[in-house]
Amino acid sequence: MTLPKVITNLINAQNSFDSIAYADCFSETAVVFDEGKTHNGKPEIQQWIDKANKKYMTVMKPLEYTENGTASILSAECSGIFPGSPIALKFHFKIVDGLIRYLKVTE
């Protein structure tokens, strides 16, 4: 499966629990929706993923990727320290100029 560089970078950052590298995959004004919460801008995204990494230790294994223009969906098996692990999640991205502008995580 061929993934855009920014998504490959995001997966690598997630799997190494590197919240700075993870946040660097996003534009300055990016928005993330996860677990019913909204995180706006790179600083909030970095704080969110750092807290999630410490709590859940989640690693991602890509399963399927589709894209339509700037919109794309990555299905991934996510495993870590949480009930129901592993779980398949969908990551809905909008990528603009090589950076993630929008991410929504769904089941």
Rank of each mutant, 00 (worst) to 15 (best):
F93I: 00
P83H: 05
I11F: 04
P83L: 02
G36L: 05
H92T: 06
G69W: 01
D34S: 06
G80E: 02
I73M: 06
D24F: 10
S72T: 06
T29N: 09
L10N: 06
V31D: 04
I11L: 07
P86M: 00
F82V: 07
A23R: 00
I81W: 15
N40C: 13
T58W: 07
Q14L: 03
K90P: 06
L10I: 00
P62D: 10
A52P: 05
C78Y: 11
F33N: 14
I49S: 02
I45P: 02
E67P: 04
G41F: 04
A88G: 00
I7D: 02
F17D: 04
D24S: 14
E35V: 15
A71S: 13
K55D: 15
N12G: 13
H39A: 12
N12P: 08
I73G: 05
P62F: 09
K5C: 12
P43K: 09
P43Y: 01
T2G: 13
G69V: 03
N40Q: 15
S85W: 06
K37E: 15
I20P: 08
A21M: 08
G36I: 05
G41E: 02
D18A: 03
L10F: 12
Q14M: 07
F91S: 01
S19K: 09
N53C: 08
E67F: 00
K90F: 04
K90S: 13
S19Q: 07
A21Q: 08
G80D: 05
L63K: 12
A13W: 00
A30Q: 06
Y56F: 12
K5S: 11
M57D: 15
I73R: 07
G84D: 08
F33D: 11
D34G: 09
Y22R: 06
T66I: 15
S27M: 00
A23V: 01
I20H: 14
K37Q: 15
P4H: 04
Y65G: 08
T70K: 15
P4T: 05
P86F: 01
H39I: 05
G36M: 07
N15A: 04
A71N: 11
T38E: 15
I87L: 13
S27Q: 00
E44G: 10
I7Y: 02
I49N: 04
K54D: 06
